[in-house]
Computed example of a mutant assay.
Amino acid sequence: MKTAVVILNWNGKKLLEEFIPSVVEFSQSADIYVIDNNSDDDSEEFLKSNYPQIKIIRNEDNFGYAKGYNEGIKKILSSYSKPDIFCLLNSDVMVSENWLEPIEKLFESNSEIAVAQPKILDYKNPTQFEYAGAGGGFIDNFGYPYCRGRVFWDLEEDKGQFDDTIQTFWASGACFFIRTEDFMNSGGFDEGFFAHMEEIDLCWRINNSGRKVFYCGESKVYHLGGGTLKNSNPKKTYLNFRNSLWMLVKNLPAWKAFPFVFLRLSLDGITGIVFLFYEGFPHFWAVIDSHFGFYKRLFHYRTNRKPGIKNYYTKKLIPFQYFVLKRKYYKDLK
């Protein structure tokens, strides 16, 4: 089974200097590509001088995460040999020895698996799970994502409790393995999202098509997080809230989509008030503005829906359990 490790870069020379060495050292069996989103630093020169074995794919503009990967992967498939699996890896991820083998074996063991992710730990605190993906992703029926090892902002210590291999709902875009055929058949990432939540949307569409998403705890990587947009950036709040609403419209059955979206809009209003007091006015406005952004393309997503019938999401209202019932750990969610 042939794997291509693909890293999306935009003005990230410092991140490449820090994290590329582990990728090169521990990915001997894979082809490594860097898709450059039209950087204006000297990222490309750094790679050419120090890692000539890495193939560089250059996009014409900063297309963001979704279109950046879509365009880059098209160029890879048109110019190089077709891999069985793509690993879409953030530029701020350090990989570990033998990180690829367990994932490749997992894909080989079950042809129904389309997407997988490894255990994702915190680069700065290696004994703790990292926000983006942790021990495998799930979603509640109002579109709030959560992970084993991470519920909202509470992160668990890795004590081996998620060293298993299980089916999940979504895989993290920080380290996202997908069969090439499934990526192309699904249409790739939704480019309207630009960045954030697009991997959950893609996984939801994968689930709706009858394919499977898995987590493999035998493989582990370490994610810095916030390498492009810091958690404190209001733009990240805007994208997460807007894209989450689009995702519900796209993927929920019709009889659920619109009542649930209305309730989610109401819950967002409450969240915005909380943000006003705890995060400040810019984040409050980002939530409000995300709703205007949502309405701008509501008709487009309403007419291009491909919902599934089976309920893959859980009925746990995560905000209520977390903020009201004070359940901070995955094992405590009812």
Rank of each mutant, 00 (worst) to 15 (best):
I103F: 09
A171S: 13
D164V: 02
Q161Y: 10
L106T: 06
W99F: 09
I139Y: 06
K82D: 13
E101G: 10
E156H: 09
E101W: 06
E108D: 11
W170G: 00
G149V: 11
K119Y: 06
G137R: 01
E97F: 13
K105Q: 13
A174R: 07
E101K: 15
A171G: 07
P145E: 03
C175K: 06
K124I: 02
A132P: 00
K124E: 13
F138G: 05
V95W: 06
C175Y: 03
G149M: 06
T127F: 09
F107M: 09
A132I: 10
Y144W: 14
L155F: 11
G135S: 04
D92A: 14
A134K: 05
V95Q: 02
S172Y: 10
Y131Q: 12
D122T: 02
I139T: 06
A116C: 10
S172C: 12
A134C: 11
K119P: 00
A134M: 07
K119M: 12
K159F: 07
R150V: 15
E156D: 14
L100E: 04
S172A: 15
V93D: 01
Q167D: 05
N98W: 04
F176G: 01
M94D: 14
T127H: 09
K105E: 10
D140V: 00
L121A: 10
K82C: 11
E97M: 10
C87Q: 08
W170R: 02
F86Q: 04
N141S: 15
D164M: 01
L89H: 11
N141R: 08
Q117K: 06
I103E: 05
D92C: 12
N90T: 04
P83E: 05
F169Q: 07
E112T: 07
D122R: 08
D154P: 00
D84F: 08
G149P: 02
V151T: 08
E97S: 14
E97L: 12
I103D: 04
G137Q: 01
D140F: 00
R150H: 10
I120F: 04
S96I: 03
E104C: 14
E97W: 08
Q128I: 12
I113S: 07
I139Q: 03
V95P: 00
Y131R: 12
F142P: 00
